[in-house]
Each structure stands twice: as C-alpha cells, then as structure tokens.
C-alpha cells in the first residue's frame, strides 16, 4: 500500500541551552505520518511530547535532523500547520465567529467567503447558535470546540492537538473524544494528537507512536485496526491497553 507521507521526522534531535546547563530533550526521533491518518503520540508524563509538536509546527527548530511537512522543510510557524492547544488559547476579545475566521481573515480572504467557511466549521463542532458569544461565556468543552473549529477553518495540511482535553472533567472528556472522532471522520485530515491517556489514544488513533521518556525517541508503534466507534471495554481494546501500558517507560 503506497500512501502519501505528509510528515517525515528524520533523525530529529533537540537540545535546550539554559542557565542550568544543556538539556537533550529529543534524541534521534524518526517517524512518518501519512495523509489523512490520525496518529497519536503517546508517552509518559513530561516526556517532551509538546516539544515534538512545537518542532512539527515550527515554533521551535530542531538542533539536528529535519522535519518535512507536505514536501516542505519546516523552518518556522506557518498557517499550513494548525494547532489545538492544551489550554484553549482563544482570543478572549473576539466572539466565536471572529475566533474561527481569524486564520482566513488575516490571510485576506473575503468576508463573505470566510464567514461561510467559518459557519461550516462552527456547525461541524456543534456550536451553531453560539456565533456571537464571547469565550468567557462558554464552558471549557465549548471553548475547546472553538479551538478545534479555528484550527480546521484555516484548512491546514496537518492539525496538531496538544492534550486538548487535559483540562476537562472526565465526562466532558469522553464526550469530546467522541466528537473528535466524529469530526475527523466527517472532515478527513492528517492529525497528530498528543496525549498521556492510554484510553484516549486507543479510542482515537489509526496508529499510536509510543515515545520514550526523556530524551524522547520512538519506542514502539501500534497500528490500531479496531472497528469504529470503538468500545472502551471490548477484549481487543483492553488487550491493546494492557500491552501499551506494559511497554511504557515508568515515570516519577
């Protein structure tokens, strides 16, 4: 099966130089993500997952090696690579509509066109009727939906999600996992999703990349071919969960 590679991480290393010394955070990281694939980067605690996302989106540059996204080497942030954050990071002074259309708006797309596009994604994430609301008036889960719509609305090549449900309560978290699955099946995109929750990883992923604890590198990969929507308590689900937990590096 020849699939188109969208993200290629080639021998990527990252060292942080700080006052207290040099820290090797990412060490010879190699992986590939294919078009329209939902890949979960899974790893223990503070294992440098966010740094990997920052490298992919170009917020930070690798010390060694290179990352190629959609045929281009990453040299800095670009609207072609969208991001959904752990904390919502919405523009508090803009209402939902203006937040979602921010990307198209700064890229100079006509008001009529970007409104139409934004409305489509607001509908997609289930926020129809909340277009005029300001972020402070929304619940945590709803704010996260705005964040997702904002990332999708910019129509990037890839979307990175950095523990987007880390701050939500358990109920909302389950609901949002279902929502993300629905959204990503309706709008096929290449998604790199970071989490430290093994259930969330298995529930969402086409493929799981297990990362080592600091310095980060790939420990193992799992292809998840369970039928969707997945059942959290099916024997296959539990077996995979068992296997990944066993393989995972211990943390403090």
């Amino acid at each position: 099966m020849s699939r188109k590679a969208v993200i290629e991480c080639k021998h990527v290393s990252k060292t942080f130089y700080t006052l207290s010394g040099d820290h090797l955070v990412v060490d010879d990281l190699n992986f590939t993500v294919y078009e329209n694939e939902f890949v979960v980067l899974f790893g223990p605690g503070q294992c440098g997952k966010t740094t990997v996302l920052n490298l992919i989106t170009g917020l930070e540059l690798p010390t060694k090696g290179e990352i190629i996204v959609a045929g281009e080497k990453v040299t800095g942030p670009s609207p072609k690579r969208g991001m959904v954050y752990q904390t919502t990071n919405l523009f508090m002074w803009y209402n939902v509509m203006k937040n979602v259309e921010f990307g198209p708006s700064v890229r100079g797309i006509s008001k009529k066109e970007r409104r139409k596009k934004a409305q489509h994604y607001i509908d997609l994430v289930g926020l129809t009727g909340f277009e005029k609301h300001y972020p402070v008036q929304l619940s945590g889960g709803m704010q996260q939906r705005v964040g997702i719509a904002r990332a999708y609305c910019n129509e990037p090549d890839i979307i990175c999600m950095d523990e987007p449900f880390g701050h939500l309560d358990a109920q909302t978290r389950y609901l949002m996992e279902k929502e993300v699955e629905r959204i990503s099946s309706q709008e096929k995109r290449t998604v790199v999703f970071v989490t430290n929750n093994v259930e969330e990883a298995i529930y969402l992923a086409d493929r799981i990349i297990l990362l080592r604890n600091l310095p980060t590198s790939v420990k193992k990969e799992y292809t998840v071919d369970l039928p969707r929507p997945r059942n959290y308590v099916s024997p296959e689900f539990l077996a995979l969960r068992e296997e990944i937990t066993r393989d995972m590096d211990p943390t403090l």
């Binding site: 989106t57 917020l59 670009s78 954050y85 990071n89 523009f91 700064v106 910019n154």
Partner: peptide, 15 residues
C-alpha cells in the same frame, strides 16, 4: 500580552 496567543496568531498566518 500572552506570548502563547501571539504564537497562535502567527501560526494562523497573521503578520
């Protein structure tokens, strides 16, 4: 000013 929000804006393509 929240520097992360500046990052968000740049990543969405803002000059």
């Amino acid at each position: 000013v929240d520097e992360r929000l500046m990052g968000v804006a740049y990543m969405l393509g803002a000059s």
